[in-house]
């Protein structure tokens, strides 16, 4: 590159109006190029009457909104939606609660903290496919898990984790909790570690009990972190696929058929691509309620934080 061009490029880049957009362009470009077209395709396909066994999609007949009508009347779809929300809700609630409890016990330094932290983070680092296979051995009714539970309780425990409707649902939730509590724990520990020491100390000086400090000082400060843990985990949990697929294939009956499994079956096993597309769009509409709720929550918390911004920056420069 000739020097002049380089300099001119450099100067062009120096302009704030340009520089601020430089990273945005590739990111937006990628998102548009990669997701926009498939999304529009999904819309189009949902209007066709196309099965994989019925020629190529370009030749499939137009079906109007019939797929949507079918989907709205499909009990299996509606059940899988409710099930997915219940699974995700329970799992995330447990993950945040347990994660919070563990975080409260570990955020200050003490002997052995490093060991605990290391071990606690392991589950989320294991590939879910491996976890699925692993749990399918552990969960047999005479298997390792029930043996241990039996040993602890002194009774013969025969919970049929893989073969009884309710137990299988619990098993899927527990497997998810086992794998992802590390993440909520990590987020919350991180939040607790980052809490400013001054308000806590001030409260202690004023004679607040441990509980009062927690309830009126730490918890409010921590609320935004709890919200982000909830939002991140909910987004991921609603997509749950690998674990129930590998543990129970959605069974017994349809007890553990999550939304992703339902859509997977319709698209890849039944070859009903158009139907699956229509169903996924309906699901997206439904999800958007969750999405907007999350965004609203996040914004509220961030806004509260940003109101604090100037003070925060002032503190920084004092250090």
């Amino acid at each position: 590159m000739p020097k002049g061009t380089e300099r001119r490029l450099g100067r062009w880049l120096e302009r704030e109006s340009v520089f601020r957009l430089v990273p945005l362009v590739p990111v937006q470009g990628l998102i548009l190029a990669l997701l926009a077209v498939p999304f529009v395709l999904t819309l189009y396909i949902s209007l066709l009457r196309w099965r994989l066994t019925r020629g190529f999609w370009t030749a499939a007949p137009f079906g109007g909104l019939s797929n949507f009508a079918d989907a709205l009347g499909d009990e299996a779809l509606l059940n899988s939606i409710v099930r997915t929300f219940v699974f995700a809700g329970t799992a995330v609630a447990l993950e945040v609660l347990i994660g919070f409890g563990l975080a409260l016990l570990t955020y200050r330094s003490f002997r052995g903290r490093r060991v605990y932290l290391t071990i606690f983070l392991v589950p989320m680092m294991i590939i879910p496919v491996v976890i699925g296979y692993n749990f399918s051995m552990l969960l047999i009714d005479t298997g390792p898990l029930n043996s241990v539970l039996g040993l602890l309780s002194g009774q013969d425990i025969r919970i049929r984790w893989l073969s009884e409707y309710r137990a299988a649902q619990v098993a899927v939730v527990l497997a998810d909790v086992w794998q992802w509590t590390p993440l909520t724990f990590l987020i919350l520990v991180s939040g607790l570690t980052g809490l400013p020491p001054d308000p806590v100390r001030a409260a202690q000086v004023m004679g607040a009990t441990r509980w009062q400090v927690f309830r009126y000082v730490q918890l409010p400060l921590l609320k935004p972190v709890i919200v982000i843990a909830l939002v991140v985990r909910t987004m991921e949990a609603l997509k749950i696929f690998d674990l129930p697929m590998l543990l129970t294939q959605g069974g017994p009956g349809n007890a553990t058929e999550t939304l992703s499994i339902f859509l997977w079956r319709n698209a890849w096993v039944f070859n009903k691509v158009s139907y699956a597309a229509a169903a996924s769009l309906l699901v997206l509409v439904l999800f958007s309620a969750v999405i907007f709720a999350s965004i609203w929550l996040l914004r509220r918390e961030r806004a509260a934080l940003e109101a604090d911004g100037p003070r925060r920056r002032a503190e920084w420069s004092r250090r």
């Binding site: 399918s136 969960l139 025969r158 893989l162 073969s163 299988a168």
Partner: peptide
């Protein structure tokens, strides 16, 4: 066995 409702070949 009662648990057979959850078993494939590996069990």
């Amino acid at each position: 066995p009662k648990d057979i409702f959850g078993w494939g070949t590996p069990q």
